[in-house]
Design a protein around this nucleic acid. Structure first.
Length: 655
RNA sequence: GGCGAGGUAGCUCAGUUGGCUAGAGCAUACGGUUCAUACCCGUAGUGUCGGGGGUUCAAAUCCCUUCCUCGCUACCA
């Protein structure tokens, strides 16, 4: 029986249409899966969607439909995109699948019963989109350290997972399995920032929203998104909590590779392994946190309006060209860049010139000289050996690169083969042979060698560009070769007739024409963005969790006054802090605030702002702060200083 | 502030344990060729290997120092 290979992608969050950066992951996973399959592994490739959480609940509400209707829609879109990219996954799991939900409930209960999960309460700042609680000290600029969005104070009864119990075992595992976290720089980050300082218990339930998997023995609670989402890797293949798991699970688990974005490395390399330890299941063999695909100068985001979507790319360039670009341009541990210029350049030079033109010229010559008949006449010359050497050695080179997940390098190796073919044409000069009656058989042999080599190259290309590989084989009227003979040559059946009407595999693109199409796309996007912004303005209110009621006396404890900023400078050791000298009545207080990204030190001077005066002084980044400047915060976390509606003197009490 | 990664041809990067004239791809220039999607083949480059100092017969490669970029993380009343 063949060795199994279980590969997964992260499940996509079903809140919006994935952009090209998200598509990278599925294409990468697909290529690895296809490659392993080609190598003879019994591959299982799982992907899917993460469909619970407050953010989806809110989006659905805004759209006026139920959360389930909402995620059905988005999950459908995501699946369509995956299919558009020609990805051959074996299972598309959705966290709203009933069998998944059922298992998550069982898992939660089991962990609770064995004491790994305990009930307590949580008090802190909550970030809705991330569904995460943060301590005041974790906040960045008063905002969510993950997404930079606004947080609001919240307290809730919650279940916690005893992470600390398993921390030592995890540290040991990571240290004895250097391949576990890839690339290694991620491993250092996890060890230094989370594991070594001491792992905190993780809150694993929520009561603040309903759209999640209910905790079946405590209905107020729904299961925290990560415990829900991460377990998809086992529930999707038939893990049965507390009883015998399906045969499929026995065969496939542990996973050979979890392919994820570098932003969720923490959840996959710390929480997920610990959940598995608690369930007494083996850990996945490897977790690869791939880099991002950036557009031009910065990370793509909808708010910047610079999002490139896969379907637009496919419209212009075709599926395989986009796959090629994604796989080729993404380096191993740095972020990659995507621009229209690069896209056009890459596709023209590699796909149209090197590969497409090679196939085309070879077929044309076969037709022109021998009516399409390709025959091995066995008239060998020295140059043939050099070609064959490269062709037969490529397979091994590709294997080496793929073993290290260096997909881009593997592709490069295959293109070395095609380039060698082009060189071979120059060396043998078929058009000169054609003029010499005596050289006809040599010419036939040359063309045979070319066709044979191209078939090898196309077969190697299959995992990365399945359609194109197939098309090439079809034009050469043959089948792609099986993996075990890809280090051999001269297997093309002699006397085969190639197509007499070679189709252009990859058309050269004119940058100008492409940019014209891009302008149309961007205009459409801008229009959509404007429309959605208008819609947002109408609903641009912010609801925060109500705090506990206070008495008038409580209120009177706080002293608010108007203060005039008379001097302000940046706090050197900090990225976000401004240090202001604020004149309040006759005294001057030094106040540090995290508003550097919204106000410059210069523009602060002269402002009359609202100050909480009697706050206990504290030291921030080595600077004493004797109060607090009050700000309002919008949905994006932007801060606006509170100022009086009428001109008021410094020191005026606010009551 | 802590931890980590990195600064090498115009661009993207490779450079094993220090060793011959520092490499590849793309872009550029020139030459060749015409079967082909104005394509292919060849040649040529240019680089203070971030700056400074040191070890060594010899350093992009080791040590020290300094500047810059990036990632994670902390503080941000």
């Amino acid at each position: 029986m063949n060795k199994k290979y279980y590969i997964t992608t992260a499940i996509a969050y079903a809140s919006a249409k994935p952009h090209i950066g998200n598509i990278y992951e599925i294409v990468l996973a697909d290529s690895i899966a296809r490659f392993k399959r080609q190598e003879g592994y019994d591959v299982f490739f799982q992907t899917g969607t993460d469909e619970h959480g407050q953010k989806i609940e809110m989006k659905a509400e805004a759209a006026g439909i139920s959360p389930k209707e909402y995620v059905d829609q988005v999950a459908g879109n995501i699946k369509d995109l995956w299919d558009l990219m020609n990805t051959g996954y074996d299972k598309f799991i959705r966290t709203t699948d009933t069998d998944h939900e059922e298992q998550v409930q069982k898992i939660f209960k089991r962990l609770y019963e064995q004491g790994d999960i305990y009930k307590s309460s949580y008090e802190g700042m909550y970030c809705t989109p991330c569904e995460s609680f943060w301590t005041e000290s974790q906040l960045v600029d008063g905002k969510c350290p993950d997404c930079g969005g606004p947080v609001e104070p919240a307290k809730e009864e919650a279940y916690f997972f005893r992470m600390s119990k398993y921390a030592d075992r995890l540290i040991e595992h990571i240290e004895t399995h250097p391949e576990f976290i890839q690339p290694v720089s991620r491993k250092n980050e996890m060890m230094n920032n989370f594991l070594k300082p001491g792992l905190q218990d993780l809150c694993v339930s929520r009561t603040s929203f309903k759209w999640g998997i209910p905790v079946d023995f405590d209905e107020k609670h729904v299961v925290y998104v990560w415990l829900d989402a991460l377990t998809n890797y086992i529930t999707g293949i038939g893990y049965h909590c507390g009883e015998d798991s399906a045969e499929q699970y026995q065969k496939l688990w542990p996973a050979d590779l979890h392919l994820i974005g570098k932003d969720i490395v923490r959840f996959h390399t710390i929480y997920w392994p610990i959940f598995l330890m608690a369930l007494d299941e083996p850990l996945p063999k490897q977790i690869f946190g791939h880099p991002w695909l950036l557009q031009g100068s910065g990370k793509m985001s909808k708010s910047k309006g610079n999002v490139i979507y896969a379907d637009d790319l496919v419209d212009i360039f075709g599926v395989d060209a986009v796959r090629y670009f994604l796989l080729h341009e993404m380096p191993f541990d740095n972020d990659g860049v995507i621009t229209w210029e690069l896209l056009v350049e890459r596709i023209n030079t590699d796909l149209a010139n090197t590969l497409g033109n090679l196939v085309n010229r070879t077929i044309s010559m076969s037709n022109k000289y021998f009516a399409g008949n390709v025959c091995d006449k066995g008239i060998v010359e020295d140059v043939d050996a050099a070609l064959k050497e490269v062709v037969s050695a490529t397979k091994l080179k590709v294997i080496h690169k793929m073993d290290e997940l260096r997909v881009a390098d593997a592709l490069t190796e295959i293109f070395v083969l095609f380039k060698r073919c082009n060189k071979y044409i120059d060396e043998t000069e078929p058009w000169i042979l054609a003029k010499d009656e005596a050289k006809q058989e040599r010419l036939e042999t040359v063309l045979y060698n070319l066709v044979d080599s191209i078939v090898v190259g196309a077969s190697l290309l299959q995992a990365f560009m399945p359609d194109s590989a197939e098309k090439i084989a079809k034009q050469l009227n043959t089948e792609l070769r099986s993996w075990d003979v890809l280090d051999q040559t001269a297997l093309y059946p002699s006397n085969t007739k190639v197509t007499d009407a070679p189709e252009i595999l990859f058309a050269r693109k004119d940058l100008k024409e492409v940019m014209e199409k891009v302008e149309v796309i961007e205009a459409t996007q801008a229009a959509q963005k404007e429309a959605s912004e208008e819609a947002e303005i109408e609903e641009a209110v912010i609801n925060i969790e109500p705090k506990e009621e206070i008495t008038y006396d409580d209120f009177m404890k706080m002293q608010f006054q108007i203060g005039e900023v008379i001097a302000c400078e940046e706090v050197k050791k900090s990225k976000k802090l401004l240090c202001s000298q604020v004149k309040i009545g006759n005294q001057v207080k030094q106040i540090v605030s995290g508003i550097k990204s919204f106000y410059s030190a210069e523009e602060m001077v002269g402002k009359k702002v609202m100050v909480l005066v009697n706050l206990k002084p504290a030291t921030l980044a080595g600077v004493v702060s004797e109060g607090m400047l009050l700000c309002a915060e919008d949905a994006e976390g932007n801060l606006g200083l509170m100022v009086s509606e009428k001109e008021m003197p410094s020191g005026a009490e606010i009551c």
